[in-house]
Each structure stands twice: as C-alpha cells, then as structure tokens.
Nucleic acid binder design. Structure first.
Length: 837
DNA sequence: ATCCTCCCCTAC
DNA sequence: TAAGGTAGGGGAGGAT
C-alpha cells in the first residue's frame, strides 16, 4: 500500500530520444493545416504546443499581460519579414534546428517559437541536451552559466539575433558570431559543429512491434483501471449514488429560487490528488510533490496534480515528468490513490450536505452549494472547511458570491486553503481586470480568438464589442455567455440532479493495430464496457456513435509514449429503431460503422463508442446472462427488420417471398424492405443455430473462408477449402464461389455470373457474420472499377451496380430506418486506388 | 423553422 | 515506458 516511490531508482534504459518532445493536445491539431510546407510541419506543431493551459498559467496575470502586449507588437513587426523570407530555401532555413529559449529575449519566447515554426525549425519549452541544438538566450545568469559548464556536450548558447538575422539573410548564418560572450570564452565552444539533426518528422522509423499496443489490446480493463482521466470522468456518474445516500442526512433547505438574491458557495479541494499523496505520506509535507504514474524521472508520464510547493517551480498539471524535473529537480513523484480519492470525495459530499440540501456536484473534488437564507456565508464556508479538514486532513477552498460564476471565480482567489467572497458591489470592479481566459467556458481557443480581437481582460470586452458582434464570431449562445459572464452576470441555478444524455467509453492511448480484427476486438471490449455502464444506470439508447482517431497522413511519431499523436477525429453514428444496451448488438453496430469509415487499421490511434438518445430501460428482465435474448426484449435492428419484412409480405407477393428462385431480378427492383426481411430471416436462423454470445467471438480468428459464413461450425479451423456443395441456405453458393476467388478478375467473374438477389443475400448475411469479406469484396470491386483488364468481365456498369448494391445493403442494414440517401457514407464516393485485393 | 449528423470546444 | 476519459453545450450545414 505504501508504495512510496523514491526518486531516481528506476531510471535505467531510456527509450531512444524522441525527435519531437513537445506534447500535442488531443484536440489542438487541426489548425496546423496549411500553415507551412511539408518540412515545416513538425515545427508548426511545436508552435501549437504553445497553447497548453499550464504554459499560459505559468505566468501571473500582470506578467502575462505585459508579454502579450509585447508579443502583439512584435507579431505585427515581424509579419512582413516573415513574408519576405517565406519560402527561402527548401523547407525553411532552420531545418534541423531545435531551440530552447532561456530567460527574457527579444523577440520573445513566443515569437521565437513562431519564427521557428515559420522556417522549419523546432522549439522546445524545456531544455534537454538530447533534443535541443541551440539555446537562445540574451544574457546568461551565473547559475545558468555554471550549469552550462557542467554539461559534457554543451549545447551552444546563442543570442536571439542569430535567429532574426538568419531570417533576414534568408539562410542559416553560422552561429559562432552570436554565441554569448561569456560562453565564447570557453575553449572549444566556438568550434562546436552546427550538426543539425534530421528534421523532426522524418526521424528514424520506429519499428512498430505488436508489443507496443498488443499488451493493451487484451487489457482494456487495466487501461481503465489506471487511467486518471477515466477515473475523474466516470466519477460523475457515481456521485449521484453518494448524493442519494446522503439525502437521509436531512440537510437544511435554502430559500427557493426567485424568492431572494442567491447566496452561492463554490467548494474545491486544494490540489486534490497531491494532497492525498501527502496525507498518505506525511513525510512529503512541505515538499514539491507531483502525482503521476511513472517512477522514472525521465519519462513522458503526465503530471495530474502537484502541490503548491511544486507550483512555485513552475510545475503544472499536464506537464510531462521529465520537463517538470528540469524545472524542479527535487520534485517528489507520488503515485495515485484512486480508492482514497473516492473515500475522501464521499466525505466531502457528506460534509457539504450537512450545510445545504442544494448541492450541485461538479466533479470528484468540486461542488456548488446554494445557501440562500441559511446563514452567514463565511461562517458556513469556515464550518465546511474545518469539518472536512478534521475528517480528511485535506484543505478545501471556498468562494462565495451571489451567483455560481462569481463564486467559482472567488474560489480561484481563495486558493490555497482559504475563503474569498465577492459582493454585488465589487463584482464589476473585480471582473474588469479578470483575464477572459478565467471565464468558465472560455478555453484556450476562445481566449485566443478574443486575443486576436484585442481582448485580454473582461474590461476590454466591455469596451470593445457589442453583444451582437461577439455573437457573430462566437455563435449566439457562446457570444451571449461571454458577454454576460464578463460582466459577472449568471442566472444559472444550483441544481442537485441532472439527467444524463449519453454514455460512452473510449480509448485513445496505446492503440496500435495490425489487422482489422484487432480493432474489432477492441470495439468488443468497449461495447462490453458500455453495456456495463448502461445496465448500471438502468438505461438504454437508440443512437450508437463510433469515434475514431486516425493518424494524420504525415504525422510524426507521437512524443508521448504510446500516444495518439497527431490525428484526425472522425465519427459515424446509427440510430436504431429501439433502445439497446446489449454489448453484442452495440459491438456489431460499431463494427459496421467502422466499415463505413473504411479506415486502415494500422492508422487507428483511438476508438470509442458512445450511446445517445437514451430511454429509461426496463430493469425488470435486464439481468445480464440470458432471458433477454429470447423473450422478445431483443432490441435494435432485428425487430425492425422483422416488422418491415412482415409488412412486405402482407403487401403482396410482388417480388418478395419466394426464396432462391431461378429468374433474374434487376438490382433496382429489390426493395430495401425486402433486403431487411431477408436479413431478419437469416438472423433468426443464425440465432437458433449458433449460441455465440457475441458476434466477434466467431468473427475473430475467422479467415477460414466460406465455412464460417454459414454460422454452423464453431471452432473448425478445418480445411481451407470452402465447401463445394450448394448449401440449402440462400447466398451460400455465391459465398463459396467468392471464397474461392483469389484474384480480382475471379471476383468479377463470380459477381458477373451471380444473380442480384444472391448478391444481396450474401451481403446481408455477411454483414451479420463476416464484415471482413464484405470489406474485401468492396475493395475488389473498387479496384476493378479503377480500370485494369479484369474489369472487362463485368463491365463498368455492372461493377458500379454491384458496388452500389453492396453499399446500399450495408447502409440499409445498419440504418434502423429507411435511409434518405442510401449510398452516402459507405465509401462510394471514395476514390482509393491503393490496396489491390 | 426544425431536426439530424458530425464536429469542435470546454471542464474536471 | 504509461495508462491522452467522459459528458455536455453548441455550431455548421444539409435534409425535411
């Protein structure tokens, strides 16, 4: 339990230095689009790194404002120069250069970063002799000088003018002239070679072994068990239980809303995880403590929380441990205590509920209270703080005011371990100087956009904009919110209970797939996770969304160990006819959505399943194991198809009914309802025949070809040869034929000879049991359409028809309703010429 | 106008 | 090594 981690200890073999050491936030990647030439890419991303929250927060308000003003000026000043030299040299003059800026410089820290980005260089926020090629510094302090002298292979320390004048000259000037005087005196310094490294993106191709992600593939559970973000994210769902349990405390009720001006308190535990670590290890008291997974002092583990002592060194949540240690060598790394967090959180909420019945949970360590009419806010706050400290040994800070917004802002002034109140009179004056970034709801993007509009503080906002102008650039709601919040106006009420609108599970770390089956397997795990959460909450949902992170085409290796790096985020959803909570069904839908996205499995970096359009479930027969499958409770597509099928039957013996009759049918004659009907029959049969709990268990490890398609053989790794005999089931003859076809022209021949109806049936069946085959077929057809001698077997029209048919069938099956545009989404529009079958 | 899907932003 | 999740709000743009 007392798994204390000593520093040092475990720093044995370090992974090879990563060419890109900066961190890319998960959602901050897209803006780099089109900003620079190919070789400037990596540097552009370094630039994006600038936006990390903790880096902004590094400075206190006044310094930041000063810096920002300075930067704004410089930005204009340098814009022209930049334009003048843009395109100088292939890929920028600083190609291979990685700078780190030390101390105050002109151009500023941030401007240098921009310049590097513009001209093909890279930028490091923290010094690392492994990565940095040049330290940029205007004057060297004694301490820095000493440190520099200790280095075995000192990195040149160069005046910022080197950068500026190189740009002006349009080429990389020798830096010797710009080496700082005090250093130049050092023997040997001036002869250091420039030795530019390979551009960041084109570094050594790290070999992608299965081990990298393979471990995780089979271990989704352990990922969730260890993920701090999963922990804080899923805690919200549990808080409801805590609240319900605490309702018996019969807490005092505040005056009802509207009756009186509100008295709102916002409560937040001070650096929660770090506090708990200190509480668990009293010897850490007063030391700079950071909570992270790694014991190593050099890794890429992320700090999730750190003590105020550590913050004095500039350490922040979100930093990587190696960077933090550069700032604070004495930093103590503490592990997570997830169970303790839960216990303490329960104590917090019980404490709060003794003061007011109206408590709105925000997170595991943070909540709002409405205490209108319940007494003096300060007394209540101190009461809460004292009780909580007594019970847990952790301090909380409280903010009070007449609305939630101001209460929260007050808390930020109260920290650490204090109370701060903002009265109605002083709220305006208080807001005037507040940085817009401090407004809840104004994040990094919004604050940047405001900055571009010349707005840094709420006061600026009052003066510079009309509300409608704001709404024009931020949208009606967000614009209004910013407008109101900047004036301290907030009409939200403290609400105890909220209704959930979605349930999901996702993983965006450690995902490295080799085959499509790997992705399918992981989706299966996620589906089980989602099922668990739905059941626990007693709800079901009709809309299933697949979320996918896909490595960007030219993404460099991710700086973070097993991280997702630079990705495109994609999603596709399907709405079912009735609400589902069954893992098998969810997984099947998710796999179909994956098919729609048509992603190369090796490029996948993240996967998620989300359920929306929630209904209250009927918890009655929802007891996991069996029951549900037979007793008509089967949700989802099946009943829809059954209904549609019956309707089609009742409508008369048009072209449906029958079975495998001989006459040929035009593809366009086949009604979507008929397709659904066919599917429903197949599904029923399969359900009877096979006890497979989940679709994938049969799906994974398939590859055996057509034998599996009939759904009869369980394990049967048997003869690779597909069965020759026509099976009684429709479509299986085609399946067998396709199973034998190994080349595109054979596929084409089979398709050309097949009846449309057989194709439909085969596709529908395969959707159920063998998506991989559909995918392969689609590929085959597409590559045939691309031309080539084989295409003649069917003719362009025929191929087009087949492709449309496949697309339609898949789409129809996975739309619970009749689609508006059946072809959309299944990749018909895709023009991939890669990947021949 | 209103809905839906896909996407982005934000917070903890 | 490390564990970059979860949920809500809302906007753009197309379909109805």
């Amino acid at each position: 339990m007392e798994a204390r981690r000593e520093e040092g200890g475990g720093g044995e073999d370090l992974p090879a230095p990563r060419p890109l050491s900066f961190f890319l936030g998960p959602r901050e990647e897209e803006e780099a689009e089109g900003m620079a030439g190919p070789s400037g890419r990596a540097a552009v991303m370094a630039h994006r790194d600038e936006g990390r929250d903790w880096q902004i927060e590094e400075h206190d308000g006044s310094f930041r404002k000063y810096m920002e003003a300075k930067e704004a000026k410089l930005r204009v000043q340098f814009a022209k120069k930049r334009a003048a030299v843009a395109g100088a040299g292939e890929g920028g003059i600083f190609r291979g250069v990685v700078i780190h800026v030390n101390g105050y410089t002109t151009p500023s820290h941030s401007e240098l970063k921009d310049l590097m980005a513009e001209h093909g260089g890279s930028f490091e926020n923290y010094f690392s002799s492994a990565r940095v090629t040049h330290v940029i510094c205007a004057n060297l302090t004694d301490a820095k000088l000493k440190q520099h002298q200790k280095e075995k292979n000192p990195v040149p320390v160069v005046h910022p003018n080197w950068v500026v004048e190189s740009i002006r000259a349009g080429r990389l000037l020798p830096f010797a002239k710009y080496v700082l005087d005090r250093i130049r005196k050092e023997p040997g310094q001036s002869v250091l070679p420039v030795a530019p490294r390979p551009a960041a993106g084109g570094g050594t191709p790290k070999k992608r072994s299965r081990a990298e992600g393979g471990d995780l593939l089979n271990n989704v559970d352990s990922f969730f068990k260890n993920s701090r973000l999963h922990f804080i994210g899923s805690w919200k769902a549990k808080i409801e239980d805590v609240m319900a349990a605490a309702a018996s405390l019969d807490p005092p009720k505040p005056d009802p809303p509207g009756a009186a001006p509100r008295r709102v308190v916002h409560v937040d535990i001070d650096c929660f995880f770090a506090s708990v670590a200190v509480r668990e290890n009293p010897s850490l008291e007063g030391k700079p403590v950071a909570v992270c997974h790694s014991e190593s002092t050099k890794g890429t583990a992320e700090i999730s929380s750190c003590s105020y002592e550590a913050r004095k060194f500039g350490v922040r949540a979100g930093m990587r441990i190696s960077d933090a240690r550069d700032l604070c060598p004495s930093l103590v790394q503490a592990p997570y205590y997830f169970e303790k967090y839960q216990e303490i959180s329960v104590v917090l909420y019980r404490t709060l509920l003794r003061s007011s019945a109206r408590v709105q949970p925000v997170s595991i360590d943070e909540a709002y209270l409405d205490i209108t009419g319940l007494g003096d806010p300060r007394e209540i706050c101190e009461d809460i703080r004292a009780r909580f400290l007594g019970e847990t040994g952790c301090t909380v800070s409280c903010g009070c005011s007449h609305n939630m917004l101001l209460a929260k802002i007050a808390t930020s002034r109260a920290k650490p371990n204090g109370v701060f109140a903002i009265s109605s009179d002083e709220s305006e004056a208080f807001m005037a100087d507040l940085a817009v970034r401090e407004i809840p709801g104004v994040g990094w993007k919004s604050s940047r956009r405001l900055e571009e509009m010349g707005v840094a503080t709420c006061g600026d906002l009052w003066r510079l904009s009309s509300k409608t102008a704001l709404q024009k650039s931020f949208g009606a709601k967000q614009g209004e919110l910013i407008w109101d919040y900047s004036r301290g106006i907030d009409s939200r009420e403290v609400k105890s209970e909220t209704k959930r609108h979605s349930v999901g599970a996702e993983i965006n770390w450690g995902i490295r797939f080799e085959h499509r089956e790997d992705a399918v397997r992981t989706l299966g795990k996620l589906a089980e996770e989602v099922e668990r959460r739905l059941r626990r909450a007693g709800i079901r949902g009709r809309c299933i969304t697949l979320k996918l992170k896909l490595r960007k085409p030219n993404a460099p290796p991710p700086p973070k160990f097993l991280g997702h790096g630079w990705c495109d985020n994609l999603s596709r959803s399907v709405t079912l006819a009735s609400a589902a909570d069954d893992a098998g069904l969810i997984a099947r839908e998710a796999v179909a959505l994956l098919l729609r996205l048509d992603a190369d499995p090796r490029e996948i970096r993240g996967l998620g399943i989300q359920i929306t359009k929630l209904d209250e479930g009927q918890p009655a027969a929802a007891d996991a194991s069996e029951g549900r499958a037979r007793s008509g409770g089967q949700p989802g597509i099946l009943d829809t198809f059954m209904k549609a099928g019956r309707r089609a039957e009742a409508a008369g013996p048009s072209s449906s009914g029958g079975g495998g009759r001989g006459e040929s049918v035009r593809l366009s004659d086949i009604d979507v309802n008929e397709q659904k009907y066919i599917l429903s029959m197949i599904q029923v049969r399969q359900r009877e025949q096979s006890k497979r709990k989940h679709f994938f268990e049969g799906f994974v490890g398939r590859e055996r070809g057509a034998a599996r398609w009939r759904g009869d053989a369980e394990g049967d790794p048997g003869p690779r040869e597909p069965p020759r005999e026509p099976s009684p089931e429709p479509g299986s003859a085609l399946a067998a034929a396709l199973g034998q076809a190994r080349f595109s022209h054979e596929v084409a021949a089979v398709l050309a000879g097949a009846e449309a109806k057989d194709v439909v049936e085969w596709v529908l069946r395969s959707v159920e049991s063998d998506l991989e085959s559909i995918w392969r077929l689609l590929r085959a057809v597409r590559s045939l359409r691309g031309g080539g001698p084989e295409a003649t077997a069917m003719g362009a029209e025929g191929l087009e028809e087949i492709e449309g048919l496949i697309s339609k069938s898949v789409e129809n099956v996975y739309k619970g309703t009749l689609p508006r545009d059946v072809c959309r989404g299944v990749g018909v529009e895709c023009d991939d010429s890669h990947d021949k079958v």
